[in-house]
Design a protein around this nucleic acid. Sequence first.
DNA 1: GACTAATTAAATTGCGTGTTTAAATTAAAA
DNA 2: TTTTAATTTAAACACGCAATTTAATTAGTC
Lengths: 230, 230
Amino acid sequence: MRMKRSDGVETRQKLLEAASNIFADRGYHDATVAAICKMAKANIAAVNYYFGSKEELYAEAWRYTFELTHEKHPHDDGVPATAPAEERLRGAVRSLMKRILDPDSRNFDIVHKEIANPTGLLHQVMTESIEPLRKNFQSLVKELLGDGATEEMVMLCEWSVHSMCLGVMFCREPKYPNSKANIKNMPKVGCPKTREVFLSMGVDALVDHVMLFSLAGIKEFRKQLAGAVS
Amino acid sequence: MRMKRSDGVETRQKLLEAASNIFADRGYHDATVAAICKMAKANIAAVNYYFGSKEELYAEAWRYTFELTHEKHPHDDGVPATAPAEERLRGAVRSLMKRILDPDSRNFDIVHKEIANPTGLLHQVMTESIEPLRKNFQSLVKELLGDGATEEMVMLCEWSVHSMCLGVMFCREPKYPNSKANIKNMPKVGCPKTREVFLSMGVDALVDHVMLFSLAGIKEFRKQLAGAVS
DNA sequence: GACTAATTAAATTGCGTGTTTAAATTAAAA
DNA sequence: TTTTAATTTAAACACGCAATTTAATTAGTC
């Protein structure tokens, strides 16, 4: 068995890197194989040679960004499994928000464009990767809500926490290298002032806020639960 | 001065209607003038005759969906200006969530796609329309937080409430008439079970939940504020 | 130096898109 | 009814790019 040539591995890697950025910036349809190869300094035929098709490259690129961002920002943010549930939830929230706000992590950019303009090509790979994380989130919320909580309550609370985290997605600065978009009129989505303030606060302060709201909401739920029982 | 012919007004209207749906389903780039005209049962030249260009039609269609959804779901949901702040906030939240969840209102579909894949063509029209609503939201939150609240706190709290409302956007069933998308593998974004549960709950229950979390969070903020002062 | 993985340029194949024009049609005004 | 201009229409225009394949070449590896 002959070893694969090392330059081939390199090119493959550069293609993944470039594809992540191009897909994140333009979405599947507006991204072109030509642009990806150009950015990777590879020949136009490289995508089909290494990945078979643009479609497969898309899925591979997503997986790549997912693994990259999770290596950099572990899902528990280093909080040990023995810590109290509140701290573990804080870790999960901080990890999620870091992954969203890190300008070098293009994973959420791709997800966001895929949600808005679905190709369906990421369904399987996304489900496999994300479901465990969601389950973890839910179990933490469930623990904090206590035994009396119904499944519906858990869903609602988990959803609220999640939504607040995802809200900061709109703080990301848009990038549009080589896109057809009209950069001059480009929307700073939402209120530019809000974005500015949030970014200057730093991740930790945002996490503190989300946790304050989340814990207050969950506590209120517990109170109602206790009232209903007695 | 000669009156405009009524059949012309009708065609224009049908074009707006069709454009709303096509743009909402496919986004600006993937939407074609041909598809819009076909849906409106108008000739291919109709868009340029009535709107000058695809770009202008895009902006007009957005404005159209905005006005339509706001006629159907007024921004205060009928809560009078004399009601206590808590009730007015509830009205604003309910109005927003109705607008998002109403399957006939395509306004948020267009916004969502524009955010994910910006053309910049809606910047002005969106800012003009949305800014007053945001200001209203903020002033309600500010009132509930009380006098001691800093601008940053108001922003954070308003943001949280808003994020939770926007979270239900992912409950919308995707539509993709005639799109290139691969319907079979189409992602039911997020957890399908969650969507199902939420939709079966109805808007009012979801509003109650968002308000429970929001008010609990705001109350907690006030508590900290009081503690800091004393 | 033989083998084959990797690269390359060029060809293949395929499909549209937004917009304009000029002629035909139609509804309303005179 | 005639006039008139708004509307509709079909066809043409003009611009353009996309993903993939092939066959020849280059360059590591054994």
